[in-house]
């Protein structure tokens, strides 16, 4: 089961550093985690998701390129059960 780094606060930077070194990592940005730059992780081919609602209300959806998938809560729940959640929220 791959690891899903749930990044939801500025301290989530610690989690992003681990995700860079984790070959089985996927990243899910929520809350203020959507302000963090996960592009270096996406560029290595690891999947990066962001909670659409949290990105939208911060006016950030345009900053997410095609490499970040914007998702709703339903998909978030599916991802949580399909991975091991590594909490940094």
């Amino acid at each position: 089961m791959a690891n899903l780094y749930l990044i939801g606060s500025p301290a989530g930077r610690n989690g992003l550093e681990l995700a860079k070194k984790d070959g089985e990592a996927a990243v899910l940005l929520i809350q203020d985690g959507v302000y963090l730059d996960a592009s270096a992780i996406a560029e290595t081919g690891k999947k990066v998701y962001a909670l659409r609602k949290d990105a939208e209300k911060r006016g950030l959806t345009n900053r997410f390129s095609g490499s970040v998938e914007l998702i709703d809560y339903g998909k978030l729940v599916d991802l949580i059960f399909a991975h091991k959640v590594i909490n940094f929220a």
Partner: peptide, 17 residues
């Protein structure tokens, strides 16, 4: 090391921050 931390991530069943 950070690599060691990633190994601890891998052996954990659950994580809490």
């Amino acid at each position: 090391s950070r690599a060691d931390v990633v190994e601890l991530v891998k052996i954990a069943d659950l994580t809490i921050d």
